[in-house]
Computed example of a mutant assay.
Amino acid sequence: MKAFVINAFGPADVFEKVEMPTPQAAAGQLLVQIAATAINPLDYKLRRGDIPAFTHDFPAILHGDFAGIVSAVGAGVQGFAVGDAVYGCAGGVRGRQGALADYMLADAALVAHKPQNLSMAEAAAMPLVLLTAWEGLIDTAAIKPGDRVLVHGGTGGVGHIAAQLAKWQGAKVYTTVGTAEKAELSREYGADQVINYREQDVASYVERYTDGVGFDVVVDTVGGETFEQSLLATRVGGRIITVLAMGKLDMTVAWARKQTVHCVNMTWPMATSVGMEHHGFILREGAKLAESGKLRPLLDSQRFSFSEVAAAHVYAESGQALGKVSLTRD
């Protein structure tokens, strides 16, 4: 099979096109013929070597998100058959082959049937961000109807899915964005109120939208300074979800205001094989929401093929994309 691999950490042009043996499905596994994948920040961080402990051994096939057709079913697998259209996030990290290839081995527990109303490219854009947003808002923060939920980065990968999940749960949804174009998009993807962070500081929008009390739940999809701003935006006793709790973080405000900080790392089941079945459950629930019109992925208008993976990574890292950057197999 054809695959795009890295044999060392480096810039986007480190990818090499190679021929590799097609893997065989073992017990509990599916062999999926890949149709599409999508780029998450995790993918280019792994390529650069930012998180070496989580990287697949060289030659490494990156990318966890995929959509495709089941080509073979391993022993003991139930609920899937050859020819099924599926999606998931099942590789590209520590010992698991990724999706930048003709075929990918995936633990069946990490896979679900593709939403019928989504294209392969659309479905491939959903898994990682859906799993992250669900683990944060549904599993951990346990949001409920009437909660005021602030999502930073309303048109980002995790952000636009988090906003839609919060809306589905009956929350009042607020998002932050940096442009008028993104504000309009964010309203289309779940936001009740959109805040331009370039025009309003934290104190101003907390006063305007919560009478100075603060939001019940804040989702930090950016990290760094935004994490500290999230603490200031959250009410006393409120909850903060962060997907990028890296480096040194000042927790003084969280302590003083009795807040709870939840860290989400959806790669853990892939890296450890612990909790994989729950990921399959989330993907099945996400497919139902997509098919009922309550959840849809935001894809950037610029599309790429697998052979253009270097250009796709450059574009994704540039910060110019509106939504997810997708790639379809040549």
Score class of each variant (00 low, 15 high):
D147V: 00
M104P: 11
C263V: 12
D192L: 03
F66N: 02
K182D: 09
D211Q: 15
V158C: 01
K258N: 14
A81H: 15
A27D: 14
A163L: 04
R198S: 10
L298K: 01
L130S: 02
S305G: 11
G223N: 03
D330R: 03
L118V: 00
T221H: 01
Q164P: 09
F227T: 15
P297C: 09
A180Y: 11
A81Q: 15
I195W: 04
M20S: 15
G79F: 02
G178P: 08
Q229C: 02
E285Y: 14
G178A: 14
G49N: 00
A125D: 07
L327K: 05
V264K: 01
M251K: 15
G214V: 15
N196F: 02
A133G: 01
I240E: 06
G212P: 06
F66H: 00
V309T: 03
V325E: 01
M276I: 11
S186R: 01
I143H: 02
D250E: 10
F281T: 14
Q116F: 05
Y87P: 05
R208M: 14
L110E: 01
A90E: 06
A38T: 06
A312P: 03
K17H: 07
I61R: 08
V213M: 11
S326D: 13
L42K: 10
I34M: 06
L295K: 01
G159K: 01
A123Q: 06
M1E: 13
S204K: 10
G49C: 03
A108T: 03
T140W: 09
V213D: 14
Q193G: 10
A316C: 08
T328I: 12
Y209S: 07
L42I: 05
S307E: 15
G10K: 02
F227R: 00
D102V: 09
A90K: 10
N117Y: 06
T132P: 06
D13G: 03
H262P: 12
L283H: 02
I39A: 04
Q164L: 09
Q193A: 13
A85Y: 08
I282A: 00
G212M: 05
F9W: 05
A72S: 14
M120S: 10
R187M: 10
I34H: 12
G156C: 10
L298M: 11
G76R: 03
L299W: 01
F9Q: 04
P297L: 13
Q29W: 07
E285Q: 11
A310C: 04
K294Y: 15
A162P: 12
P115C: 04
D102Y: 15
S230I: 07
L298S: 04
V14M: 08
V73F: 00
S119I: 03
D139H: 14
K144Q: 14
K172V: 15
